[in-house]
């Protein structure tokens, strides 16, 4: 009876709603170098995550401890540091509010893409090779073409109503910054910053899972002031 009672309390704590906030932030210099930042904010899901962590297993799979998760992340960061064209990799983790921020500098857009693809390939053991075929990022000097991998999310086909609602509450924000001003862009959902040097597209994880081209954008730049 005691065990049943404890299980009841923990599981009800666990069943609360939650949401996810992601930002991918790409700053591109005129010479093709730049900085890539990726932030994941799970602070609104703190109750849920803490409930997960209190469990031994979920859906028959072992729930990793915080130390196991942080060890995995450290390995990823170490791997990223060894990639060609990638430098100054930093990772901030806040395990109280569950906010994680990655920041790295890259020598060129193609090297950034290559590094991310290599990382995904190594981790997925060849399971997502097909999705990695197309180019996500191309930069010509006057225009940038951005997209995200065309993943198929099998698990999402069987989502329950409350899970869909949770995913809809979250947000995915894609920001692209330039040294020069932006002339125009193709994505109709995108907005431009007042300084004209940054473009933002926002959606929610649920929509993104179903339409991975929601964040696709081709951004055209004005030529630099020196040339004008």
């Amino acid at each position: 009876m005691k065990q049943l009672f404890s299980t009841l309390v923990i599981s009800l704590l666990f069943s609360m709603t939650s949401c996810l906030e992601i930002i991918d932030d790409l700053s591109l210099n005129n010479d093709g170098t730049g900085t890539f930042k990726y932030a994941v904010n799970l602070s609104a899901s703190k109750v849920k995550i803490n409930s997960y962590l209190a469990l031994d297993s979920l859906d028959g799979k072992k729930v990793p401890s915080i130390s196991e998760v942080s060890k995995q992340i450290e390995e990823l960061i170490d791997e990223l540091c060894t990639m060609d064209g990638i430098s100054d990799v930093t990772f901030d983790s806040n395990y109280s509010d569950y906010i994680f921020k990655l920041k790295l500098d890259f020598a060129s857009i193609s090297e950034l893409e290559k590094a991310i693809k290599a990382l995904v390939r190594n981790r997925s053991k060849g399971q997502v090779d097909r999705e990695l075929d197309h180019e996500w990022l191309t930069y010509s000097g006057l225009s940038l073409n951005r997209s995200i991998p065309r993943m198929e999310f099998e698990r999402t086909k069987n989502l329950k109503k409350n899970e869909i609602a949770e995913l809809k509450k979250g947000s995915y924000t894609s920001i692209t910054r330039f040294e020069n001003e932006v002339a125009r862009f193709d994505n109709k959902s995108a907005i431009i910053a007042k300084n004209k040097k940054a473009v933002m597209v926002r959606t929610n994880p649920y929509s993104l899972i179903h339409e991975t081209d929601l964040l696709d954008n081709t951004i055209y730049l004005r030529e630099s002031t020196d040339n004008e």
Binding site: E21, S43, M200
Partner: peptide, 13 residues
């Protein structure tokens, strides 16, 4: 409870 959110500057994002 409390949660953290990201707040954007409209000038620069």
């Amino acid at each position: 409870t409390k949660k953290i959110i990201f707040d954007y500057d409209e000038d620069t994002f």
